[in-house]
Computed example of a mutant assay.
Amino acid sequence: MAKNHIRPEFTRELLHPRYWLVWFGIGILYLLVLLPYPWFNRLGRWLGRLAMRVMTRRKKITRRNIELCFPDMTEEQHEQWMIKNFEGTGQAIFETGMAWFWPDWRIKKWCKIQGVENLMLGIEEKRGVLVIGIHFLTLELGARIIGTVRPGVGVYRPHDNKLMDWLQTWGRLRSNKYMIDRGDVKGMIRCLKQGELVWYAPDHDYGPRNSVFAPFFAVEKAATTIGTTILVRAANPLLIPFIPMRNDDDSGYTLVVQPPLEGFPIDNEVNAAIFMNQVIEQQILLAPNQYMWLHRRFKTRPDGEPSLYDV
């Protein structure tokens, strides 16, 4: 049995005063997402602009990532993308509340799926499905949308704060059968061999271990995990990308589920990383302002090469 949380355990320790501020914040979020969607969606954009003034380090990282990936854009275009990205970051706070607290009927009212038939592939033959989730600002909501039609197995990093770990696990079990620690590779392989749908995100910089360098947009050497290759070799799952996009007209969300990928170069880890980065680029370009640019995607560099960041 894979290491998992069938149901998060609530203990009296989580009521300790040191967690009261978190409880207060979660309570406010719960109340706000009870409001009409357009109301708190606009509030999210305002909070994002406020965060851009306060989170100066993240602002520099976001701008730098956009500059590195899209060097042919003008400085004004870089600035516009960064502003839109921070607005989306503010909206993502409420989208997390939507994913954790909204009932299914409200999710279905505001969230539509294109390509739902692709999620059902592999069920009859009990072939696992590795859904290629990309770190969009809407990722929490995207997993919940998928869970309304086909619950799967969530892959997560335990939170350092015990209350937040309980909350995020409880919230994500609204759309998943159970959760697996992202370091439990054997557990993921076992789930895929059992025909489960497993969410996996290969687009961040997870450090030099189990990574190779491959192009990512205009950055020629981006540390890219070989985890996808490991899972495909061991379990032979279908590889299905999906992207949850926030509609520009405040009409909700469209989750696009792509057909299974073909031609994955399983025998060469570098070629596989290049292949996956190209797939990820295609998904990002569908809604580039909604990608999570605020992380240091290029923090790991080849030996002897300088950092691409000054923060």
Rank of each mutant, 00 (worst) to 15 (best):
G25L: 08
P36R: 05
V33K: 00
Y19A: 05
W23K: 04
F40G: 09
E13D: 15
G44W: 07
P17M: 05
L35P: 00
L15Q: 07
V22I: 14
P38T: 01
F40E: 08
G44K: 06
L29Y: 02
H16F: 10
L21S: 14
E13G: 13
I28W: 09
L29E: 03
V33C: 05
Y37N: 08
P38L: 03
P17C: 07
G44Q: 06
V33T: 06
Y30M: 05
R45P: 10
R45E: 14
F24C: 13
L15M: 12
G25M: 06
W39T: 13
I28M: 12
L15V: 11
H16S: 12
R18F: 10
P38M: 01
L14A: 06
P17K: 10
Y30I: 02
R12S: 15
E13S: 15
W20L: 03
P17W: 09
H16P: 09
L21I: 13
G27A: 09
W23N: 02
G25F: 04
G27T: 09
Y19L: 01
L43T: 08
I26Q: 03
L14F: 08
W39E: 04
Y37L: 13
V33G: 04
R42Y: 08
L34T: 12
R42V: 10
L35I: 00
I26K: 02
L32N: 08
L31F: 05
Y37A: 14
L21W: 13
V33Y: 01
P38Y: 01
H16D: 13
L14E: 04
Y30N: 00
R42K: 14
L31H: 00
Y37H: 12
R45W: 12
